[in-house]
């Protein structure tokens, strides 16, 4: 929410240059796309916080609700924006939870990077047959693969972690499907961007 407010504040500054104090403010030139990204990243961050309140039976098994936002951004603003939103969410989320540069942060980062990489290819699947559900499932599997790769290469280089893979894969399939369906649900009823709807809804 904060970045949303800040985005609007800077927009006002631009339209009324006399308002802002030139001594104390460094005015960044932001575009409309920056504002979309900031808004969506804020929504994703909110979902991350929400998700962290949900107890998990096994560390690492999480619904990944923030990926709903990534999917919507991918469909609406393209892959570049999705990368921004996803990485901003990972970094800002880790700052929120105090896990910046800890193993947990690198796990999320590798998972996010892998799923973004897969999404770069998955978005080119013919839209007639493949929707957000497919994107979501592929991204979820890539996320798990990236994380397990990171765990194996860096944290626990032992073949024993292979015993956990079926659990993570099943979770990826289930949560990937559900997230994809939720994202599809949000997308199919809206012709106008979600961000403008959200701001209208909250005001």
């Amino acid at each position: 929410m904060r970045s949303e407010e800040r985005g609007e504040a800077s927009a006002q500054n631009r339209t009324h240059p006399s308002i802002h104090d030139p001594r104390s403010t460094i005015l960044l030139d932001t575009t409309a796309e920056d504002h979309h990204i900031a808004r969506m990243a804020a929504v994703a961050l909110g979902l991350t916080v929400l998700e962290n309140a949900i107890p998990s039976p096994l560390p690492g098994v999480k619904p990944g609700l923030a990926n709903i936002v990534t999917l919507i951004v991918l469909a609406r603003y393209g892959w570049r924006a999705a990368v921004w939103v996803s990485l901003l969410r990972v970094v800002a989320g880790s700052l929120l939870f105090g896990s910046f540069l800890t193993p947990g942060f690198f796990l999320s980062l590798s998972g996010a990077a892998c799923s973004l990489l897969v999404l770069a290819f998955a978005q080119h699947l013919p839209a007639r047959w493949f929707g957000p559900v497919s994107h979501s499932i592929y991204a979820a599997f890539a996320h798990i693969a990236g994380q397990m790769g990171m765990v194996y290469l860096w944290l626990i280089p032992h073949a024993g972690i292979a015993y956990l893979i079926p659990i993570f894969a099943a979770a990826a399939l289930v949560f990937g499907t559900v997230n994809g369906l939720i994202a599809a649900r949000f997308m199919d009823t809206e012709s106008e961007p979600l961000s403008t709807k959200n701001t209208k809804g909250t005001k």
Binding site: P126, W129, F130, G131, S134
Partner: peptide, 9 residues
């Protein structure tokens, strides 16, 4: 919400 390809996936 689930197209043919999604079922395949």
């Amino acid at each position: 919400h689930l197209k043919a390809g999604d079922w395949l996936t």
